[in-house]
Structures are given as C-alpha cells and as structure tokens.
C-alpha cells in the first residue's frame, strides 16, 4: 500500500462498516424470536461434522487417484475435509453465537406445512392437482393462517381456478388433472 491516506481511510471505513453491521443486527433483533442457545450451535456443528466425515469415508471409496490423475473421490475428499475442519472450528467458536432461533409451539406450523406438501406430492399423480391443491389452500388459510371460513373458501377456490387456467390453458403445461 503506497497511499497512506487510502489505507487509513479504508481502515476507518472498516470500522464504520462493523458499526453499521452491529446496528443492523440490533435493528433486526427486535423482530427475532429468542435465540436457541449453545445446544443449537453444538448440534448444528455436530451434524455438519457428521456430513463431512461421511463424505470423506465415501470419497475415499470412490478412489482418490493422484494429483496428476485426480480420481473421482479426490475433490469430494478435499471438500469433506474442509467441512470437517470448519465444523470443528464452529464447535470451538460457535457456542456463544446468538444467531439461532429457538423452536417454539409455533414451530408446529411449518411441520403441518411440510405434511401438506408431502401429501400433495403423493396425491398429484393419482388424484390430479385440483383437489389436493384445494385441500392445501384450506389447511393453510384456515388452520395455519387463521383466516375466516368465508375468506378461506373464496381464496382457495379462486387460487385453484387461477392455477387451472394458468397451467393448463395459459402455459399448456401437462399437469396431472382430474377435470
């Protein structure tokens, strides 16, 4: 760095940036549910550690080859080792992080959401998309969203009709359908 002034200025900017980031984090803090605590961090790090270890073992089995003739396992091995190292680092430094969110009673909602997704995936090939989609809308609006029955029915029917028109007639996409 030849220009002293730029250096100093950049350092200063770095500080303002750091301040800003803190400020931004603070801004968002108020909307966040309570943090999950060290258990969340440790479990997450252990999971990624396991991914890295399994990846490394499997990669070993694919054949590493050599640097001049890299085998299929070499790259996955390198990546897996990086994951393992980073996960260990996270185990060390991550315990105090507060970027996780505690699971709460409200976490049941996404669970139900996933269940409706899965149900839809199973039903589409056999039932066509219309009725399962209608079911999903009703569940999401009435039970997950707490809408009134009236708006649930109106929005559900409207949505499915719109999709029917859009996919089958607008875009002519072959979607399994009953009607």
């Amino acid at each position: 760095m030849s220009d002293e002034r730029t250096t100093a200025r950049r350092a200063g900017e770095g500080d303002i940036l750091a301040e800003l980031e803190a400020e931004v984090a603070h801004e968002l803090e108020e909307q966040r549910p309570p943090a999950g605590g060290p258990t969340y961090q440790v479990v997450a790090a252990l999971v990624t550690l396991a991914v890295g270890l399994v990846g490394a073992v499997l990669a070993q089995g694919y054949g590493l080859g050599s640097l001049s003739r890299p085998g299929p396992g070499l790259w996955p091995m390198v990546v897996s080792v990086v994951i393992v190292v980073l996960s260990l680092a996270l185990l060390l430094v991550g315990r105090g992080l507060d970027d996780s969110e505690r699971f709460s009673r409200a976490s049941v909602l996404p669970l139900v959401g996933v269940a409706t997704f899965i149900a839809l995936a199973f039903l589409i090939p056999t039932l066509g998309f219309e009725l399962p989609a209608l079911g999903l809308c009703v569940v999401w609006l009435r039970f997950l969203g707490g809408e009134s029955w009236r708006s649930t029915i109106v929005v559900s029917l409207g949505t499915v009709a719109a999709f029917y028109a859009l996919f089958l007639y607008g875009l002519r996409i072959p979607l399994p359908h009953l009607f």
């Binding site: 039932l127 089958l168 072959p174 979607l175």
Partner: peptide, 20 residues
C-alpha cells in the same frame, strides 16, 4: 380429519390425465 375424509372421498376417483 378434513384431510383423511378428503382422501377417502377422492381415492375412488380415477382418470387423471396429464394432457391438455
């Protein structure tokens, strides 16, 4: 309950087509 009734009522139906 809603889901299972719906599934029951509908599983009898067939004739899903994929074309327009």
């Amino acid at each position: 309950a809603v889901a299972s009734t719906a599934a029951l009522a509908l599983s009898a139906c067939g004739g899903v087509s994929t074309t327009t």
